[in-house]
Computed example of a mutant assay.
Amino acid sequence: MDELPKGFATNNPRPFVQIAMMLWRDKLAFCAAIFISLVLICTVLGPIFMEDIATKQNLRGRNAAPFDWSQNWVFWLGGDALGRPLLARIIVASQNTIMVASGAVASSLIIGTTLGLIAGYTSKTASLLIMRLADIIMSFPSLLLAVIVLYMLDPAVGNLIIVLAITRIPIYLRTSRAEVLEIRERMFVQAARVMGASTNRIVFRHILPVVAPTLITIATLDFAFVMLAESSLSFLGIGIQPPEITWGLMVSQGRPYLTTAWWLSFWPGLAIILTTLSLNLLSNWMRTALDPVQRWRLEISRGKK
Rank of each mutant, 00 (worst) to 15 (best):
M99T: 15
G103D: 06
T113D: 00
G116Y: 11
R84A: 03
G78R: 13
G78L: 11
T97G: 10
L82D: 10
I111Q: 08
L117G: 05
S108I: 04
W73Q: 11
S107R: 01
A93K: 02
L109Y: 15
I91R: 10
I110R: 00
M99G: 10
G83E: 03
S94A: 15
Y121R: 07
P85M: 04
G116R: 03
S108D: 04
N96K: 15
A101N: 03
I98Q: 12
I110G: 01
G103T: 03
L86M: 10
S102Y: 13
R84N: 05
I118S: 01
D80W: 10
L87K: 06
W76R: 00
A104S: 13
L109K: 02
D80R: 07
I111L: 14
G78V: 13
T113Y: 10
L87A: 14
L115V: 06
L115P: 09
I90K: 01
A106S: 12
V92L: 04
M99F: 14
F75K: 00
V100Q: 02
D80P: 08
L115M: 14
A104F: 02
Y121K: 00
F75V: 01
L87N: 09
V74R: 12
L109D: 04
G112F: 05
W76C: 03
N72V: 06
G78H: 00
L115A: 10
V105T: 07
G78N: 09
S94T: 14
L82V: 06
R89Y: 14
T113C: 07
A101M: 00
D80F: 15
G120L: 13
I91Y: 07
F75N: 04
A104R: 10
F75L: 12
S102C: 12
W76T: 09
G79W: 05
Y121T: 01
V92C: 04
L109I: 03
G112Y: 07
L117T: 11
S108L: 03
N72G: 13
A81C: 05
S108P: 05
G79R: 05
I90L: 15
V100S: 08
A119K: 03
A106Q: 08
R84C: 07
F75W: 14
Y121N: 00
A88L: 06
G79M: 05
L115S: 08
A88N: 11
S108A: 08
G116P: 04
I110V: 07
I90W: 07
G103N: 06
A104E: 06
I111K: 11
A106W: 08
G79L: 11
N72T: 14
I118N: 00
P85D: 00
N72S: 15
L115E: 11
V100K: 04
I90D: 12
P85T: 03
